[in-house]
Computed example of a mutant assay.
Amino acid sequence: MATSMMMDRASMTGMGNAMPMGMGAGMPASMPNMVMVPRCTMKMEKCTGGMKITCMCDDPTACTMMQNLCTMMAGGMCSVACMLNGMMVCCCNLTMGACKVEMTKDGCCVTCTSGDKACCDMIQGCCDCMTACMKAGCTCCLMMGGTPVCCCMC
């Protein structure tokens, strides 16, 4: 699928290449934990009470895959990881607000908001940080429950 990327889930969650307990001496120290992630166009913007992340796919197959992932993972912690040259630049865990996922005709829209002023400021600060990372050329990956659901090559 030309509109998807291969991502290593372990490096996204901070687990690195840790050896699982119980691995025998003959087993490789690192077992890849790869997943195909739909490639999309991602837009982040501030809104009243927080921020809105819009993911759009041109390819109908990638769009359906992303929407299915979002539907399955909805309700889990929402986070965005920004990567540059294979290294994580920043990861914003949006735990300080309530995240709501809505399907659109060409993707999905995740709205993270909070009624608390301090939490709203943190969410909007994350929006500013991730927008700056995308403008600088970072790859951004939207995750739900630690599972990548879409990725943007800016």
Rank of each mutant, 00 (worst) to 15 (best):
C119T: 06
T147R: 06
V101D: 03
M34W: 04
M103T: 09
P28Q: 02
G97Q: 01
M73L: 12
K117P: 08
A25D: 14
M153E: 15
T13P: 00
A136N: 07
S79H: 02
A81V: 15
R39A: 15
M130N: 10
K43A: 15
G22P: 00
A98I: 08
G115T: 09
N85G: 08
G16P: 05
Q67N: 02
V80L: 12
M36W: 12
A81N: 10
C152Y: 14
D58A: 13
T139V: 15
C40D: 04
L69N: 07
K46F: 06
P60E: 13
C78L: 10
K135S: 05
G50L: 02
V80P: 07
M1Y: 00
N85W: 08
C90V: 10
K46L: 10
T48R: 11
G97R: 01
M19L: 06
C47T: 15
D116F: 07
A118Q: 11
M7F: 08
S79E: 11
M15Y: 03
G49R: 03
G26P: 00
T95W: 06
A136M: 09
T131V: 11
M6S: 07
S30L: 11
G107M: 06
A10L: 12
M31H: 12
V35D: 07
P38T: 01
M1Q: 02
M1P: 03
T71E: 13
D121Q: 11
C129E: 15
G75C: 03
T13N: 08
C82F: 12
T113K: 04
Q67P: 00
M19A: 06
A74K: 13
C91Q: 14
C57E: 09
C91Y: 02
G24K: 14
G26E: 13
C140H: 09
G16Q: 09
G125T: 08
C152W: 06
T113V: 06
D58K: 14
K100N: 09
C63Y: 07
M36Y: 12
C78I: 09
A25P: 07
M72I: 12
P148E: 01
D106R: 14
C126G: 10
S11E: 08
T104F: 02
M34N: 02
G50N: 06
M122Q: 11
G125I: 00
D59E: 11
M103E: 12
M34R: 10
T131F: 02
T95E: 09
C90Y: 04
G14R: 04
G50V: 03
T48S: 12
M27F: 05
G107W: 05
C154N: 15
L69I: 03
C133I: 01
I53Q: 05
M88K: 13
N85D: 15
C91M: 14
C127V: 08
L142N: 01
P32A: 04
E45D: 13
P28G: 01
C127R: 08
C40H: 01
M130C: 11
I53Y: 01
A136Y: 04
T54R: 13
M27K: 03
T71H: 11
D128C: 11
D106Q: 13
P38Q: 02
G107N: 03
S11Q: 07
K105P: 00
Q67W: 03
K52T: 14
P28D: 04
N68G: 07
M83G: 02
A98H: 06
T41V: 06
L142V: 14
G146K: 03
M72P: 01
G137I: 04
